Simulated scan of single mutants.
Amino acid sequence: MPTIDRIDAFADEMTAIRRDLHAHPEIGFEEVRTSSIVAEKLGQWGIEVHRGIGGTGVVGVLKGKGDGSRRIGLRADMDALPMDEATNLPWRSTIPGRFHGCGHDAHTTMLLGTARYLAETRNFDGTVHFIFQPAEEGLGGARAMLKDGLFEKFPCDEVYGLHNAPDLGHGEIAIRPGPAMAGADFFDITISGYGAHGAMPERSKDPVVIAMTLGQALQTIVSRNVDPLQSAVLSITQIHSGSAYNVIPGEARLAGTVRAFSDEIRNLIRTRMRAVAAGIAAAFEVDIKVDIRDIFSVLVNAPEHSERVAEVARSIVGDANVKTRETPKMGSEDFADMLQAVPGAYFWIGHDGNVPLHNPGFVLDDKILPVGASMFARLIETRLPVGGHDGATHV
């Protein structure tokens, strides 16, 4: 596998960084230690450092050889998940309720490896913006950086991101042009009924029964309102009500997520959720409040930039290991918001292990660190070639 020799030479140092970040995970907008390490490393390598972008975000700026005006952004997420780890590894999380169960520690390390290599070689003509993003896990870190003027302060002509993928084999890289990951809403529904003794249900407006009825009714939206040729998911993931065996409570709450690959379908589902809730509220003579929040946009990879990723991947892992995903992923990713502002692509790097992301037993394969760093580095060297015409797009 022809990863970059210089990056391979400091692969052990990358592993040490990754495992240190893994042992000290921080959730969204709390990445104080992580962002400090990132800023310190970038500064050591002579890269211009900007902190506090979108909260705890960090951006490094590096100019290459020549006077080319093109600019490319490379993005990695830094946050961990609010969950416990169950791996018992020597470098396992030292913080209860915090775990890098999605591999963002690896993404941060890969981008640091890319930054070190490019700072040493500067074998490109133009400017690279290394974007270290906070709060990817549903807290709006990308939107916070964009609101803070990310692409006004650090303009980019293209932007790229990546993610580890235990569903792919080690050394495989996957890309999907067009819609690649679903947009997502989170919702909270509050049913305000009327409590009573559990032995006297006729005196209540039972929010538990209403919640069960509403939950069943909401499932008809995807099965009966969404075009069956379109993909969508409506999942109720939380139900909260009551505190005693013999008390009918006064309130029940439902929460969950909606996923779809078009804004039209997302709007349809939102409208139907509110209509169904209003109908059931009228039928049971209670008040039902529905709060639906747009959390992730649909992630759309530009076809041109997707092909550039595939070409670079072939040079690193070989033709047989470059995959074009046939179907989009129902999972979501807030890099989608950056791709709405700047064209680019998001790709996946496979690794050993079959425990899925967000599982307490997830283990990342450190052997992929040089692969990800080499992918980012080669994208820069091929998209911003030394001696190429300004604005060149060949590979």
Rank of each mutant, 00 (worst) to 15 (best):
I95H: 11
A302R: 14
F335T: 01
S35K: 05
H240R: 14
F10D: 06
D287H: 13
F132R: 02
G183L: 09
P207H: 12
T327Y: 13
V61H: 02
R270H: 10
V317Y: 02
D366G: 04
I131K: 03
L369G: 01
D105W: 06
I191W: 04
T87Q: 05
P343H: 03
P134N: 03
V209W: 14
V38G: 02
F154L: 06
G140P: 04
G183E: 10
D291E: 15
A310S: 09
L339Q: 06
A144G: 06
L162R: 03
A260G: 06
A211Q: 08
C156Y: 00
D352C: 02
I7M: 04
M200T: 13
F151Y: 15
P82H: 12
G60V: 07
A275V: 13
V222F: 04
I7Y: 01
N267L: 15
K63L: 12
I368P: 01
F284K: 09
S235C: 13
M78H: 08
A174D: 11
I210G: 10
V247R: 11
P82M: 08
S243D: 14
R51T: 15
F130I: 06
G126Q: 14
P155Y: 00
T94S: 14
H305T: 13
R314F: 05
G101D: 00
F151H: 04
E85Y: 07
I131S: 01
T237N: 08
D352F: 00
L74W: 03
G140E: 06
F335E: 04
G28M: 01
F99M: 13
D291C: 13
G140M: 00
T108W: 06
T213M: 15
G66I: 11
G149Q: 07
Y245H: 14
D319V: 08
G57C: 09
N123R: 11
G73I: 03
A283C: 13
G215M: 11
P2W: 00
G388Y: 07
R308G: 04
A165N: 13
R92E: 15
D157F: 01
R378G: 05
R266I: 08
V49R: 01
T213H: 15
D206C: 05
H394P: 00
M83T: 07
A144K: 10
H24G: 02
H22S: 05
N267I: 10
I47E: 06
K63H: 15
I189S: 03
A232W: 05
F99Y: 14
M1H: 05
P370S: 09
R6G: 00
L62V: 11
S231T: 14
R51I: 02
A244M: 12
R75Q: 09
W91I: 13
D157H: 10
Q219G: 10
I175M: 11
N354L: 06
R176Y: 11
S223D: 09
G126K: 08
P303D: 15
R70D: 10
R266P: 03
A39D: 10
A260C: 07
S69C: 07
I189M: 05
D227I: 12
I4K: 03
Q340Y: 03
R51G: 00
A278Y: 00
G46H: 11
V233R: 03
A16E: 12
F130P: 02
G43I: 12
A283M: 13
S315G: 15
D291P: 07
R122N: 07
V290H: 11
F284M: 13
P166N: 06
M212E: 03
E13S: 08
H163D: 05
A184I: 04
G103V: 08
V247P: 14
V298R: 10
R19F: 04
I236M: 08
S332H: 02
A23T: 00
M83S: 10
